[in-house]
Structure formats: C-alpha cells, structure tokens
Design a protein around this nucleic acid. Sequence first.
DNA 1: CGGCGTCCTTGATCGGAATCAAATGCGCGG
DNA 2: CCGCGCATTTGATTCCGATCAAGGACGCCG
Lengths: 238, 238
Amino acid sequence: MTTIETTDLPETCKDCSVRHVGICAALTVAELHRMARSARHTSHGAGDPLVFENSEITSYANVTDGVVKLQRVLRDGKQQMVGLQFAPDLLGRLFGTENLLTVEAASDVDLCRVPKSVLEGLVAGSAELKQRLLDQSLQDLDDARDWMVTLGRKDAQQRVASLILLIAKRSGPWSSGGAAAIIFELPLSRSDMADFLGLTIETVSRQISKLRHDKVIDVVNHRQVTVPDMARLTARAG
Amino acid sequence: MTTIETTDLPETCKDCSVRHVGICAALTVAELHRMARSARHTSHGAGDPLVFENSEITSYANVTDGVVKLQRVLRDGKQQMVGLQFAPDLLGRLFGTENLLTVEAASDVDLCRVPKSVLEGLVAGSAELKQRLLDQSLQDLDDARDWMVTLGRKDAQQRVASLILLIAKRSGPWSSGGAAAIIFELPLSRSDMADFLGLTIETVSRQISKLRHDKVIDVVNHRQVTVPDMARLTARAG
DNA sequence: CGGCGTCCTTGATCGGAATCAAATGCGCGG
DNA sequence: CCGCGCATTTGATTCCGATCAAGGACGCCG
C-alpha cells in the first residue's frame, strides 16, 4: 500500500513548526526517521541555562520555538553575547568537542535535541544537509561580522537602535515598502541587551529613553515595542 | 606508463606553498587540474585593494602568501576590520553574489585566483572540499565571536595585547611550554591595528608604548616585535 | 647632504559612557 | 491592600579614550 509522504513522517515531526525549514527541510523522510528515533523535544523557561562553557558537546539541538542567547564569559565575570539564535537555527558547534560558548534561553524555548553522533552521521551521508549547514554557518559569519562593526565603531545610541532593528526584522517579516507601524515583544532584558551591545544597563536604558523621547520608538511595560517608522529607526542605527 | 603523483601535478601547483594545506589538500589530482586550468597567480603590494565592497563576486582566491585585511566601511567613512586572512585561507564569500567586504593586502600578498563558477562546480562535486570549506567557515565564525568579546568588553590595553597575541600565534607555531622569546614582524600599520581594534591610532600607539615600558614586549623600527614571555602578554590580553 | 612626506609618538583637553547612588515602577505573596 | 524584591529609570560624578595639536623618526629622491 502506498501512502502520501506526510503519513510516513515520524510522529514527533508531524506537527513540528520547523519541519519545512532549516536542516529538517534538507532531509529525506528516511533520514528524518533516523534522526527522530533518537531526538527528544524539551522545553525551557526564560533564563534557563542550556549549555555550559567548556562542557563536552554531546548533542546538537534545533531551536523549534523561542530565542536563545550565545555568550562568552570573561574571567572577571563580564560577559559578551556573541549571537542570538531563532527558530529554526541549529544549536551547537559542529564537529567541535567542547562548547566554547554558554547558551541560555532568552525567552521560553523549545528544543529538539539530537545526539552528536547521529547528526554527524547524517551530515556525512547527505551533501544537501552539509550544504545547508554550510549556508547557515556562512550566514552566522556574516552576522557576526556585521556585529563587529556595531561593537567597534558605533556609539551607544546607534548600538541600541541597531539591536532593536535586528529584533524587529527577525520578529516579523515586515513589508519594506509599507509605512505601517511594527509592534513586537523584546525577548531580552536590559541586562541582556547590555551584554549584547558591550554597554551597561544604565546606558541602554538612557538610550531607550532618548529614542522614546524622540518618538523613534514607543515602549510599554519595558518590553513591548512599537516602531512607527522603520526608516527613522534605521537612520539612528548608523 | 605510470608516473608518481607529483609528476602529474599541474605546473602551477608544483611549487605552490599551499599545495598540501587548505582547500587544495582536499582535491584529487584530477580536480587540481580542473582548477589549475583556469587559475591565475597574482602578486600585490602592501595596501593594494583586492576587492571592493558592493562589487559583484566573480572569483575566489586562495591566499598563497602574505596577510589580507577584510573590512567594512561605514557611511561616515569610519572603518572596522572584521578579519585577517593568512595563507592558505580562501578569500571570498561562498555562494554570495555581492561582496559585503572591502579586501586589502595588509602585507605583500600572492593570490591564486579561481573563477567563481569553477570553484563552485568543484564544491558541488566534492564532499571533501565542501567539508573543508565548512570547517574553515566554522573556524572563521569562532574567530569572529572571539573578537566580538574583545571589541565589546575589553579596554584599550587588553585589546592591543590581544591583537599582538593573535599575530604572534599565527606567525610562528610556538612551543607553549617553552619560555623562549618570540620574534615576529607586525603585518599591520598602526592605522590598521586601530581599525581592527575599534580604537584610534593614538590610543594604539600609547598602549604599545605602555606595554614596551612594562617590558611585556619590545619593539624595534615600529614593526619588529619581541615577546620575552608569552604568558605575561596573555595575562595583559584579559 | 638636505628637504619633504609619511608614519609614529607624545602631550593637552574634551566628551561620552562607566560607575556610584537613589528613586520609581511593577509583580507577587501574605 | 500592603510590603517586599527585582528590574528599570534617572541623576551626579569620574575616568578612559577620542580629539586636537605638536613634535620626532625614518625612507626616499633630488
């Protein structure tokens, strides 16, 4: 008896929000089964630690919902965020043996964890998957380099505007032409934002107040942001 | 008649310094021939522009000798260096259509240029090559994230020490145990260093003077650096 | 040898973000 | 409803690095 593809999908994948994007989109049904057999879905609250720096890498994880912070901690306790991952990004340094980063849930997060050996086996067998991973790492590299410019050459005002812009863009694909206001929830606390931006909490807060005073953004409850005019925010981001 | 591998090598590859490393090490002799047929070696003096931001990508290039700067320029003329490439790194954003970076020779540089379509054809056909490129981009990503920490959280002294340390490590593999002094040539001008570090020329110069005064490094002719004790330099780098 | 240009160093002052300190707002449990 | 704890905002002061401004050092070319 022949069935259509969807009925053959592993149970865990059937309703998965990332089934058709990210690395899962690059897999055949057979490969999906192989992965799903050892995959496990987990949920985490905002602020939960997901991976500790210097721990051994034993699994990778697909972000199926929420936002995850990647950070590096200095000996003196200061920390710098080096990336944010949204669904459907893959978490974990491929082919690494040791985690170089601390990973924390920024918002509530759902993960689909896959043992290291299983994913690496799939990568070895699938040129398409390898291609997908290469694409993501190249994109991450572009993003990291963009952020280096922000950290190295922008002042506090431009940095804060850059971050809000970044989140606005990833929150909802927005019609670039339209002048409609964008509304979204910040997945980051002021402290997180400071860590991302290489600033202090106080400076972040002051710059947000200034942007608000200048009517570039509106903020309610510290978290919900409205951007009436993306072009004006973009201009502030340098 | 059977010949040993080396006699079958393309002429251009026979004496090439990167023949056995980087992407070339991942290629079969046949693939090397295919690449060599359209490859072209070029030499460039320090400071020569190699690639302009926003230009179309038409070729990739293997760095066979020297050091290359990757930088991003802001509208107001400020610039931030986002990476350094040494032999045998591959230059050029894979699968991109447009250069997002300005590329300049930091020192005298030799390149082996390959048309975009030729290299991409080879990548499509060789899992090993794809793997090698994935490895490099993952390494570049790790490096970029390391540097984000430097830019976001370190003070001027630590930044300058970090850069000298980085160059020292890439200049000559040094026996980590030994206390022998390391001597090397800086491939970067003060201005380049400032661009890399998100500082001004004056601040870089002052910090170098301070490191010299504290006997952490010795400098002659502005360029030749001696590090008597790597551990002490590492400590200064934060 | 002397003059000039470029790169680097050093000094004086200024400004923006960090730090120190306090007030306000807000959620939560009693 | 009140009081407590935490995150955020706001204010005052300090300090590091940018900026402005000279002064060397070195190489190149006449």
